[in-house]
Computed example of a mutant assay.
Amino acid sequence: MTRSFRSLTLGAVLLAAGALTAPAVLAQEAPMAGMHMMQTPPSLNLSAHGEVRMAPDMATITFGVVTEAPNAVEAMRSNAARMNEVMAALRRAGIAERDVQTSGLNLSAQYDYVQNEPPRLRGYQASNQMTVTINDLTRVGTTADAVVAAGVNQINGISFGLKDSSAAEDRARQLAVRNLQAKAALYAQALGVPLAGIRSLTESGGYSPRPPSPMYARAEMAMDAGSTPVAAGELTVRIDITGVYDLGR
């Protein structure tokens, strides 16, 4: 009994000693964590961009054939016959089949509306929309004229683009980084502190083809004296970047 009592007494003393020393250990760790957070260097969070302007080397035209007839079958048949003529005209213009895509096909009933009277069916309208890629900009105007002569009665728009934008994007990246570095150096000089290394860098933007816009005639930029004049202009490739720089003390 005496030996057991002594063992219990010794265990209680050790537990009490542990309880007394644990807060001291925690108290020592807390200031160390605070010191670690205080050692985070000051930083600059900046953004910049680079732009490159280039002449386009391809164009995309969207057009359509719209026909009307008293009944649906006749409207579709008439539309198909005219579209076959348009496709033949595209082949004669040197447009490859892979560069021609159907982008819309629609058939709808057409009604006449008179006040205080029920709608009266007038007939049916068939619409076939095509998107054509032209890789030779000298053929844009002549191609538009050819499809209109073959039966196209609706041109929805034209857009210009680049077949390969990688070189322009890389050049824009270089310009963006130069602008970011110059801005960071300027801030550090104004603050009177040395500029340390860059901590992170993120990118956004890049080349994005413009959506089709209506075709406007510009005689001063005519591709061919005898065709519809088309102005290609220039495209802008832009890269946006954001960087975080550490500052010295």
Rank of each mutant, 00 (worst) to 15 (best):
M1R: 15
T2C: 05
F5G: 12
T9R: 15
L10T: 09
V13R: 05
V13A: 09
L14I: 14
A16C: 01
A17C: 08
G18L: 14
G18Q: 12
T21A: 09
A22K: 06
P41A: 05
S43N: 04
N45G: 06
L46D: 00
A55D: 02
D57W: 00
M58V: 08
T62I: 10
T62K: 11
G64V: 02
T67W: 07
N71C: 06
E74D: 15
R77C: 04
N84E: 10
N84M: 08
A88M: 13
A89D: 04
A89V: 03
R91T: 14
R92I: 04
R92T: 08
G94L: 04
I95G: 01
A96K: 15
E97D: 15
E97P: 05
V100N: 03
V100Y: 02
V100M: 07
Q101H: 15
G104F: 09
L107K: 12
A109M: 06
A109D: 13
D112K: 14
V114D: 12
V114N: 13
Q115K: 10
Q115G: 11
P119E: 09
R120D: 08
L121S: 12
R122N: 09
Q129H: 09
Q129C: 04
V132C: 06
I134C: 08
I134M: 14
D136C: 07
T138K: 15
T138G: 15
R139K: 15
G141E: 03
A144F: 11
D145Y: 02
D145W: 01
G151K: 05
V152Y: 02
I155C: 08
I158L: 15
S159L: 04
F160D: 00
F160E: 00
L162G: 02
D164R: 01
A167P: 04
E169D: 05
E169V: 04
R171S: 05
R173D: 04
V177K: 02
K183Y: 08
A184S: 01
A184C: 02
Y187V: 06
A188M: 01
Q189C: 09
Q189H: 10
P194V: 02
L195H: 00
T202C: 03
T202S: 12
E203F: 12
S204L: 08
P211L: 12
A217T: 14
R218P: 05
E220N: 11
D224N: 13
D224H: 08
A231V: 05
E234R: 11
T236N: 13
I239L: 02
I239D: 00
I241F: 04
Y245E: 02
R249H: 11
R249I: 06
